[in-house]
Amino acid sequence: MKVEVFVTLKPGVLDPQGRAIQHALGGLGFAGVNDVRAGRYIQLDLADGTSEADVRAMCEQLLANTVIENFRITGV
């Protein structure tokens, strides 16, 4: 089974990369880009029957740093 994990910075954590992307988009002439937050997308190919609890544990123990990041799981 294919599971997708989206790792994003928590609200309130400054995102220098998102800020740089925002400025670059402005430089390209795209007006009205109010904010950009950059994150990480991870695809997992897991044995059928892997539980959401298992995937959550993977996120908490490695895929996300929960000090600064949230994660969202789809496909399980």
């Binding site: 954590v13 220098p16 000090v67 600064i68």
Partner: peptide, 17 residues
């Protein structure tokens, strides 16, 4: 050390990139 939980917090990309 922060990733291992031996110290609190995290080290992020430099503010100036």
């Amino acid at each position: 050390l922060t990733e291992a939980g031996l110290l609190p917090g995290a080290l992020m990309r430099n503010a100036g990139l």
